[in-house]
Design a protein around this nucleic acid. Structure first.
Lengths: 159, 159
DNA sequence: GATATTTATTCAAGTTCTTGGATATTTGCG
DNA sequence: CGCAAATATCCAAGAACTTGAATAAATATC
């Protein structure tokens, strides 16, 4: 269906990548390239590699997560040091954080593409993340835990 | 003094232009070019012309005003339709707006470079802008009025 | 409306960017 | 360790961007 017949420049393609990452479960650059092809954008794996690096996309387990650059806001790298505990409950995830950092954490979560979070509410040291259903919440909790455990090195050295 | 001996790329130069515009009273592209030269950045008038256009700088009377691009926020073009009245009072300016639009108007004013505004407070249909002194407030009021009167065409067609 | 000032555009050259193909490197797993 | 999968990097060619000089167009001034 998607036959976007246009040369598409780099920026457009990267925006598309962010969208695809948040919609589908993509775990390899080849997969991303194929997803792009589905949308009518054909590029080599090398290009996907460079795009992911420039976008600062993070690979956690075998799932890409993207946090759109926003100078002035906290980055995903604060999670490991701010998050103390993660507990899924029904379709929610209760995240315990260092005192005073709940706002920063929820801000990051709000901006991460690829997380099945509908919205967040932050207190002083607690963030409540709402997902659509129990399964999604479980997945979200797992991913956040992975992020906190993982070396925050993104998929490439963003110059 | 300012002898920034570096080739300076386009972005750096444009950021510098925004700063110079808000600090000094610049009214011609030649003047901007000279101000840049003072900082050690030498460019032709043609380049300044293109920079101002790309930055979306507006010329009101013989004063440049810049509103940094911020997709997602209202642009300066909303002023003519939202602002109903402008009254300077001491070091303040009281701006009457269409009901519900005071927030948008204050947001724009906060972001305009070159206006001598220390800060703003918005109600429902009123914005209070605080300047450092009576003279500055008077100037601010005049500039806002000019903006509202002027054709909002920026200094160039930002492609 | 003629002149001077200010701004925009055209042109050409030099530079940088972008990208695919090939290849090297890294990572994960037995 | 050795293999396979995944990712990063080198290289070269073409595309796109950047910029100054010259010039045209627009605007202001008298």
């Amino acid at each position: 269906m998607g036959a976007t017949r246009a040369p598409v420049d780099k920026t457009t393609r990267q925006d598309l990548i962010l969208r695809l990452i948040s919609e589908r479960d993509l775990g390899t650059q080849q997969g991303v390239a194929e997803a792009l092809a589905d949308e009518g954008v054909e590029v080599a794996q090398a290009t996907v590699s460079r795009d992911l690096a420039e976008l600062g996309v993070l690979k956690v387990g075998n799932r890409y997560l993207a946090l759109p650059h926003d100078p002035g806001s906290a980055g995903i790298e604060v999670l490991p040091s701010f998050v103390l505990g993660i507990v899924p409950a029904r379709n929610q995830v209760v995240i315990h954080t260092r005192d005073g950092t709940a706002g920063a954490v929820s801000s990051v979560l709000d901006r991460v593409k690829g997380l099945k979070i509908l919205g967040t509410i932050a207190g002083q040291d607690t963030v409540l993340a709402i997902s659509s259903d129990d399964e999604a919440a479980e997945e979200v909790a797992g991913l956040i835990a992975d992020v906190c455990r993982a070396k925050t090195r993104p998929a490439g050295n963003v110059e």
